[in-house]
């Protein structure tokens, strides 16, 4: 066990380090910013929310007596007279996953204190996020035009519309919140708040570039959840 002059131990890798951290004082996750720890725990809780939504969707899909509509037909788009199944969703998924990439880069540039590039990358992420929400709005209005309602739809089981609007709505709400916070973080990075450690307007807490990472965690989570929604709702 490496000891420094003051009796402090250096961080160790592996299981021994894990046990050491948890049996140590002050913090269980060494070098983890409070905000980041909080975000991880929040996301764990949120995972339970989305899991409950998806499990409930599976249950009603199984309990309903009317056949389930075929998602690849319902979610098809006709381009130049050709029916392409799941086209819009494919594009949306692609965009959202790309936004995770730009977010990861933003975190990286943030820690290098590259203000300008970080801002641009966050803004780009927000743009991707906003266009995802926009396309979702398009998809909703298209389905509504075709007569899909939360309580009924022309294609089959009424639970199809219910689960669709509820789950994509709840996810879209997460994305929208994310976009708003991305814009706020982008503004702070741009102004240099994180370089100077300015205090937040509401929280009066000092900010640093860790906030970009915390924001990134949320964003990746929302993205990951979408993958599950995509798999369970659109592909199944």
């Amino acid at each position: 066990m490496a000891k420094t002059a003051t009796g402090a131990k250096a961080l160790q890798p592996g299981m021994a380090g894990f046990a050491g951290d948890w049996s140590s004082d002050q913090r269980a996750f060494k070098n983890v910013h409070w905000g980041k720890a909080m975000m991880w725990i929040f996301l764990l809780s949120d995972t339970f929310i989305f899991s409950c939504f998806l499990l409930s969707y599976m249950t009603v899909r199984w309990s309903t007596t009317v056949p389930w509509p075929n998602p690849s037909e319902v979610f098809g788009l006709s381009v130049g007279g050709v029916e392409v199944p799941l086209l819009l969703i494919a594009i949306m998924t692609f965009i959202l996953i790309s936004s995770s990439g730009t977010m990861a880069m933003a975190v990286n540039y943030g820690y290098r204190k590259n203000r300008k590039v970080t801002t641009y990358l966050i803004l780009l992420t927000a743009l991707f996020g906003a266009s995802f929400v926009g396309m979702q709005a398009f998809e909703w209005s298209k389905l509504i035009h075709e007569g899909v309602r939360p309580w009924s739809n022309p294609f089959g089981a009424p639970q199809f519309g219910s689960a669709f609007f509820m789950i994509t709505g709840f996810h879209g709400f997460h994305v929208s919140i994310g976009v708003i916070f991305l814009l706020i973080v982008a503004r702070k990075v741009w102004r240099g708040d994180y370089d100077r450690g300015d205090r937040g307007y509401f929280t009066t807490m000092k900010g640093g570039y860790e906030h970009v990472e915390t924001m990134g965690l949320y964003w990746h989570f929302v993205d990951l959840v979408w993958v599950f929604i995509f798999a369970f709702f659109y592909l199944w």
Binding site: A8, L11, Q26
Partner: peptide, 9 residues
């Protein structure tokens, strides 16, 4: 935050 942990108090 530092790289060290304080245990031996």
């Amino acid at each position: 935050m530092s790289d060290i942990t304080q245990d031996d108090v």
